[in-house]
């Protein structure tokens, strides 16, 4: 694990926290339920550590919305739900009482749009905090093992990634999800520099 300057790490955690707070607010208004957030866990880890963590955290298939982004730093934002819980969430959203285990095309579209809204809320908040513009690609919906997707998010096998884990839960639906940001080292440097500039704008 790489240690950042504690002040920069604190600023980055807060920036992500604000973004995910915005995302939770959006999710809450979509499903008309309170959304609880855990304290964000922020680490910069080697890719192989990251894959081991992902395998430990999620067994089996998950519903994933992946959004690539570009700009002053580029990377991938992932919204990850266990497959069964994603169905509960989307059926709450669509007021659909189906008990079928497989996802329908409409439900897949709905999950993609939920992911689009959540990830964009988060990325928009981060961009505004840093005073920069982030350009988002079209989001994609994938059912896969999260470790396989995160492995695909960075080409450098010896690189590092930011692992930001925030669990959010919707009590009534018992749904838990994670938002992950995967950035390679040049992007982490650019992101840290942007955070440093932000800190310098606020005199201590």
């Amino acid at each position: 694990m790489i240690a950042l300057d504690p002040i920069v790490q604190d600023a980055l955690t807060e920036i992500f926290n604000l973004g995910i707070g915005q995302a939770a607010s959006v999710l809450s208004s979509l499903i008309e339920e309170e959304v609880a957030l855990t304290v964000p866990e922020f680490e910069i880890v080697r890719k192989n550590e990251f894959l081991a963590l992902a395998k430990e955290q999620w067994q089996g298939l998950a519903s994933i919305v992946r959004q690539e982004f570009d700009g002053p730093f580029s990377g991938n934002a992932l919204l990850v739900f266990p497959a069964r819980e994603s169905l509960q969430l989307v059926r709450a959203l669509l007021s659909n009482g189906s008990t079928i285990d497989t996802i329908t095309e409409l439900e897949r579209d709905a999950l993609l749009e939920v992911g689009n809204i959540i990830l964009n809320a988060c990325l928009s908040s981060i961009a505004d905090c840093l005073g920069q513009e982030i350009v988002n690609a079209l989001p994609v919906y994938i059912e896969a093992e999260p470790a396989a997707i995160v492995a695909d998010c960075t080409e450098d096998p010896f690189g590092h990634v930011i692992l930001l884990r925030i669990q959010f839960s919707v009590q009534k639906e018992d749904v838990r999800g994670h938002i992950l940001f995967v950035l390679d080292m040049p992007a982490i440097d650019a992101f840290s520099q942007a955070a440093q500039r932000l800190i310098e704008n606020y005199p201590s």
Partner: peptide, 9 residues
């Protein structure tokens, strides 16, 4: 009508 709520947008 967009989820991209950045100030620039």
């Amino acid at each position: 009508l967009t989820a991209n709520v950045q100030t620039s947008m």
